[in-house]
Design a protein around this nucleic acid. Structure first.
Lengths: 166, 166
DNA sequence: CCCCGTTTGTTTAAAGTTCAAGAATGCTTC
DNA sequence: GAAGCATTCTTGAACTTTAAACAAACGGGG
């Protein structure tokens, strides 16, 4: 009767409520952490995540592409970010000996120190905002839910075509 | 024995897993929606949210401050955003008769049309990414969890001082 | 060895966000 | 009704992100 693409299945009232609660909470959370870290560590949340990634890596260093994948950002964005962190003296670049195209981002001692100094405050912010408020059942449920959502978004996603990220 | 601020209560392994799953999923989700809307509607997710906010308001218009609060962004950011949407012809500004400082952002017919055309695709993206993958128990749990998290972040938050937002 | 398609990382410019300051109007109080 | 403080919105500059294009190096086949 109708050759059109299909009338959309709108969200039910209940779904709508859940979706808006999700958007509201995640927005507030990200804003909160961004401001907390900007204030206490002088960088936005994602830059902090880059330093953490480096700190956990074998010799506190990672190839640019690896770091970009781990942080789920483009190489371009990472290039800019590392340039900024380098100016702060928290990261330095090193050539990769085995691949002349490659670069390592290396966490400096100074960068490590920033992390050591600011990590407690950050953890505490996360606790206050999330873990101190949720029952362990809720924490478990949240973990599972986020896992599922991430899985659905990870691959190329229904007709997409992008190479590996973004 | 130790007058220092307290040794930090680090996240347990399980909490760590939940937290990373949360960050991972929310990042992927936001990226996904941003790209979906940029592609199909020519604007980022937050701009789309502004149009939705206007579409739902009484005469498809809202004072700048109200819209900013609803979208949880600063007035400054909103000013820039509305300038852009105005250039697209999707929003126009109108003076407030009762308060000469005030401005209304008004959704144009063209803006409404964009929304009408792109909303189905957006809803479908949200469904595919989230609601089609979660049981109704999980949806319920997610709603409650996000509600709780948002509540903890909404007020001034432990020693903060900011006026009303950000 | 050379060609050619791929991968790596950077660069440039445009778009978007943040931050601090400012102009105009409103409101409250003396 | 004037002073002084608050609110509303905008502006411009600095910074970050996105998008597209590019140079250099890799690597598999002929």
């Amino acid at each position: 009767m109708n050759t059109a693409p299909d009338q959309p299945r709108w969200l039910t009232d209940e779904e709508q409520r859940v979706w808006r609660a999700y958007l509201h909470a995640t927005t507030l959370m990200e804003d909160h952490l961004d401001r907390q870290l900007q204030r206490d560590a002088g960088m936005p949340h994602i830059y902090y995540g880059l330093l953490v990634g480096l700190a956990e890596a074998p010799r506190r260093r990672l190839r640019m592409t690896e770091l970009a994948m781990q942080a789920k950002i483009t190489r371009s964005r990472l290039s800019h970010a590392i340039a900024r962190l380098e100016k702060n003296g928290w990261v330095r670049r090193e050539d990769c000996p085995s691949d002349k195209r490659g670069q390592f981002a290396v966490l400096t001692d100074e960068g490590y120190e920033v992390l050591r100094r600011t990590a407690p405050g950050h953890v505490s912010a996360v606790r206050q905002a999330m873990f101190d408020r949720l029952s362990s059942e809720q924490q478990k449920a949240l973990g599972e839910i986020m896992q599922i959502v991430a899985e659905g978004l990870q691959p190329d996603e229904a007709g997409a075509d992008l190479p590996w990220l973004r």
